[in-house]
Amino acid sequence: MRWARLTAVGFLFWLILTAGMGWWTVLIGLAIAGLVAVLKIHMLATDSTEPTLSGRETLGMIGYALGMIALVLPAAWRVAMIVMRRDLNVHPGVLYHRTTLTRPIARTALANSITLTPGTHCVDLDDDRLVIHYLNPNFTAALDQHVLERRLAAILERPA
């Protein structure tokens, strides 16, 4: 059942990208979607106790993703300016950060958000500890102020 659901989602995505390109493309897409679903089930660990996202949480995450644009665009500009400068003013380092988020999906979203925010990159996620590489210490301000964590906690962390 799970395999069929994953195959259907993958195949739908394939159809959106390749609609109108002939039957061979449809058959190839179906085969690839099925193969990817098999690989996903057998090779990627999943937590069966993790509840799926509710409608409210899904809408919240869409709003969160749109809100990320306000963080990503200016910071991408700052990184672009750094690499274009003659003196290449970078002071890279590694930061260990403990998150207060408890749900695996919230921690994954936090790690991806940190990676999408230029200047910081999530290198490893081990339980509640994130290893973060930064280009300059001032890029970690949003992390120090727990801005992303507070937003994600409001959307994904359910009260016990």
Partner: peptide, 26 residues
Amino acid sequence: LAGTIGLLRLPDFYCRVHATTKCDPV
């Protein structure tokens, strides 16, 4: 262009990952 220049100019593997995963998706 900035991502590609960053890939060439930044000093190590982790810094280069910054350039390719930030500038390129934007």
